[in-house]
């Protein structure tokens, strides 16, 4: 193992506890699926305002896609991880394992 200098730096966008929960929950969706905002809110048990704030940060980083549509006449908001977000999340998990020294073999 390399010393402290060689250890990976964790992605600060994901490393905040609330955003980590958002990304982890969205990663459970099948590829190509989106989740309605109220359901995501229910899964995470966050307030709407709090969740919106974190989603905006994740959206700015290009990690999630927030789509506003209409179902009949009621507006609906759907959220999904982008490809980039999924990759970033996988990288983050890998970095955590590396920090703990439980990563896969090799570099």
């Amino acid at each position: 193992m390399s010393g402290a200098i060689g250890l990976p730096e964790l992605d600060p966008v994901i490393h905040a506890q609330a955003r980590l929960r958002v990304v982890a929950a969205l990663s459970a969706l099948a590829d190509g699926d989106r989740l309605a905002f109220p359901r995501l809110q229910g899964l995470l048990d966050m307030t709407a305002g709090n969740l919106s704030t974190h989603l905006r940060k994740l959206e700015e980083a290009g990690y999630v896609e927030v789509e506003k549509t209409h179902q009949g006449r009621t507006p609906a908001t759907f959220v999904a991880l982008t490809r980039r977000g999924r990759v970033a999340f996988e990288q983050y998990t890998e970095d955590l394992r590396a920090l703990l020294g439980t990563g896969g073999e090799g570099g």
Partner: peptide, 27 residues
């Protein structure tokens, strides 16, 4: 807001917990 970064152990545990909770309710 509890938003301090967690230790790597706690982060990994949180990921597993959150993914399992989501799958239990979505699948």
């Amino acid at each position: 807001m509890t938003d301090e970064p967690l230790s790597p152990e706690a982060s990994l545990a949180l990921i597993v917990e959150e993914q399992e909770a989501a799958r239990r309710r979505l699948d």
